[in-house]
Design a binder for these strands. Structure first.
Lengths: 348, 348
DNA sequence: AGGAATCTTGCAATCGTTTGCAATCGACTC
DNA sequence: GAGTCGATTGCAAACGATTGCAAGATTCCT
């Protein structure tokens, strides 16, 4: 009898669907407002009442609807992360560097109680990409990963919108808050190392369009000029492995032996390049020196291990989030340019 | 004068902040309802009215608030993607495989007009991870990437929640809808290839805890038993490169020459393993054969290039999204088990 | 011209939560 | 015992967009 009673009451409870705070309020015999306060952990509610409400909530697996809460409070607890893709649409999002950065961002944001909304956009097809994201009302702030060729648009938006931080290159007097490596310095380090390793005819492998890459290229160019060498030869490629391989092969055919030092825009490209050089029967670093950028895990495991310019991705992610949260809190923040670090392994 | 007038009106417009549909309605001289309908592209509004409203919206850069819209329509246009991390917290999210899958998911979802909300959870610290995400009201459906050690919990949730699809391993009679590779078959293919390449003492490299890996291991075990070989030796490691390297070295020290065929749970591990073998002075494939899993880009560029078992990540992502959307539309869907494919390169 | 049929539009309720304000209830003081 | 002071709680108005219903405006037909 007692058992049956207990079961009945259990069934009753299970049968009562709790869709919203009002349902729960009815069960608890209080008003919706009180439930809201209790669940939000405010001090205004009586301890016993709060416990009762919390118990009921747990029992029914009830959680306040974040949409409604967000609407009322005018904040969502979500940070947008957007990756603008250049012409080279498909690949960048699977690019190892961006993905690693994204992973760290997810960790950092979670740590601070924020969710992450990821959006991949193709600015060429959607000029409005950034405003659309911000204006959606779904996010409290936005982190832009990579400026691509959208520097100007980002500047425009920064004018009227504070809750934005960008990963990328810093330019004298720019308005938007950026976190990134000193790419130009990185380029200099790379070129200097190539030359120290005996190279005299340098090339830059990768697209020089994106502003970060352009800066790396420029840095190498600085050094070549200073040392009285021939200008660095740009070997333009896409980033996606499939296309890049062919393109690299093509470049080698054309410029063949005219090159003895290669600065690759990315470790990924450098790795491809190594494979290609091996196929051509060129020895690294004896015939050709090569140096990458990023210091991704892959750099450690190429043969021979890749000399590269290191970016501290984890620190970058940390700073991006930190600066964004400060901005959300109303603070003014400066851009942060991090120093690159040469990691000498065996390819240069 | 005329010029000044024009400027004034421009300023007026610029000064009038349009925060919501009501503001815009006032400007357009219609009711909020009409604006809503116009912006939603419904046929019910007069063409001229719609144009006027659209023009005003464009002019003021107005976009309807998605939170409010979501609240009213009871759908958000957001799909949650959640990655449960095992004990091995930090690394998995930067694991190349997951990240690649994530990239493809982002592409597929965008294609269908959905946004992607990414969440990384540590089930050990938060038993409630899945319900919490689903119950948040922020997402219309959820894609779980990897079952980790959470098979049971996922099963429980699947009982009462339809809008979920999982990437992982399929088990006879399971309730939740899963997309994944036939891991056991993959394990068999790998072992068969190792044996065909001359190996007789097999080892499995990686954690055998996660259900996908366990299935791969079991597949290899099947073959070893069938061929009358000694059981496959499990060499347990973490996934993160830093720890795995040491662990692999440790395993080699202990089991030294007792192994001549290695099946790595992952290409990443296989690549590390190659480096480690090289350091030990062992030749691949002459002394030791090795075979990976996934066919990540890295597999093509190890030295020598890695023989591996291919999973079609892009197809997987496509199917995950396809099945989820069907479920959102109310359809019943079956799990999808994709066949793995042996890619023979030079390590076995 | 009168009436029916079709288009457009406005009205107001609704989604679920939060929060300022005011009301209620005890307890405590003088 | 009346008055005061906190501590709790309820009430109701937001937040911003959507949508069923009904009214008003057009058009069309005879």
């Amino acid at each position: 009898m007692a058992g049956s009673d207990k079961n009945d009451s259990k069934d009753m409870i299970a049968r009562t669907v709790v869709r919203n705070i009002t349902d729960l309020a009815r069960l608890a015999g209080v008003s919706p407002g009180t439930v809201s306060r209790a669940l939000a952990g405010k001090t205004l509610v009586n301890a016993r009442t709060r416990e009762k409400i919390e118990a009921l909530a747990r029992e029914h697996g009830f959680r306040p609807n974040q949409m409604a809460s967000g609407l009322r409070r005018q904040k969502t607890g979500v940070i947008g992360v957007v990756i603008p893709l250049g012409h080279d649409t498909r690949q960048q999002i699977s690019d190892s560097f961006f993905m690693t950065l994204l992973g760290h961002l997810a960790d950092e944001l979670t740590l601070h109680g924020y969710d992450l909304m990821l959006r991949r956009v193709v600015p060429d097809e959607d000029a409005d990409w950034l405003d659309r994201f911000i204006g959606s009302g779904m996010i409290d702030g936005v982190i832009v990963i990579g400026q691509s060729d959208q520097f100007e648009r980002i500047e425009d938006v920064a004018e009227g919108y504070r809750a934005m931080v960008v990963w990328g290159n810093h330019q004298e007097g720019q308005r938007h808050c950026v976190v990134g490596t000193d790419n130009r310095l990185g380029g200099r380090l790379a070129a200097e190392r190539l030359i120290a390793a005996g190279a005299t005819r340098l090339a830059f492998l990768g697209d020089t369009g994106p502003i970060e890459f352009a800066a790396r290229f420029a840095g190498a160019q600085d050094v070549a000029a200073r040392m009285g060498l021939a200008p660095v030869l740009p070997l333009v490629t896409h980033l996606s492995p499939d296309r890049a391989s062919e393109e690299i092969a093509g470049h080698f055919e054309r410029h063949g032996r005219g090159i003895d030092g290669i600065f690759a825009a990315t470790d990924t490209l450098a790795a491809l390049c190594l494979t290609e050089l091996r196929a051509c029967g060129l020895r690294v670093p004896e015939d050709v020196r090569i140096i990458g950028f990023d210091d991704l895990p892959v750099a450690r495991h190429t043969v021979p291990p890749l000399t590269t310019v290191r970016q501290d991705i984890a620190a970058g992610a940390h700073s991006l989030v930190d600066l964004l949260l400060r901005r959300l809190a109303g603070e003014q923040t400066e851009s942060l340019v991090m120093p690159p670090e040469l990691v000498t392994r065996q390819t240069a």
